[in-house]
């Protein structure tokens, strides 16, 4: 695949200049040296890949630095690369309002040996991290340590599985009749332990699969 897709008739986007990117990278490399694993740039945006161990310290340094002051945590998200080791990219997007700078930090965790990875929470640096981290736990299964208990925030509390992982099918797993949602996978057998949702009846008992009830009980 060509590096730059040459598209006729369309002027190439002028990549915006990010003047404080070098200063931010310099701050991190000066203080943490080996903790900065990689620095990449694409379309004018700088991404710094950090060692998860120094992540919280690096965030605090970026927030408190006099010339940078990344006071707004714009977003924390995750990307799942199942064939890669480590598996998850936890991506932090920071914005500095006073200096109009923006930078992206990444921490890479998880993999074959660590299917439910843990990483330190940055809630002590920015309280905004709260719900972003809960969402990542809910959808990817990454636990954040150093903050209150993790709970599901978007899916129902008794849901199995983490939907945004690449091995979770888009249609979900088959649920016992009556279906609240999701559909049966077309070509795979039903994995064990998935779809424990049951129909709760008004007398408190639970019917595992209503389709198997005999006509007499109806």
């Amino acid at each position: 695949m060509a590096d730059e897709v040459q598209i006729e008739g369309a002027p190439l986007l002028a990549t915006p200049v990010n003047p404080l990117a070098e200063a931010s990278v310099a701050l991190l490399t000066d203080r943490f040296g080996a903790g900065v694993l990689a620095v990449t740039e694409h379309r004018g945006e700088t991404t710094v890949t950090l060692d998860p161990a120094i992540l919280v310290e690096a965030c605090r340094a970026l927030r408190d630095a006099q010339n940078l002051r990344y006071s707004l945590l714009e977003d924390i998200t995750a990307v799942d690369w199942p064939e890669r080791e480590p598996r998850y990219d936890i991506v932090y997007q920071l914005v500095s309002i006073e200096t109009r700078a923006s930078i992206r930090l990444k921490a890479q965790i998880g993999g074959e040996v660590d299917p439910d990875p843990e990483i330190a929470s940055v809630m002590s640096v920015w309280p905004a991290a709260d719900w972003f981290e809960l969402e990542i736990y809910d959808l990817f299964g990454v636990t954040f340590t150093g903050r209150g208990e993790m709970r599901r925030i978007l899916m129902p509390t008794d849901w199995d599985g983490h939907p945004l992982r690449k091995d979770y099918p888009i249609s979900g797993f088959s649920l016992p009749d009556p279906h609240w949602g999701g559909q049966a996978p077309l070509d795979q057998p039903l994995p064990p332990g998935i779809g424990k949702l049951t129909l709760r009846t008004s007398d408190g008992s639970e019917q595992p699969n209503i389709a198997q009830r005999s006509e007499d009980d109806a």
Partner: peptide, 12 residues
């Protein structure tokens, strides 16, 4: 569909 080159962007 079209295939953009590999990479990541953040647009606000």
């Amino acid at each position: 569909g079209y295939r953009p080159p590999a990479g990541e962007v953040w647009v606000r």
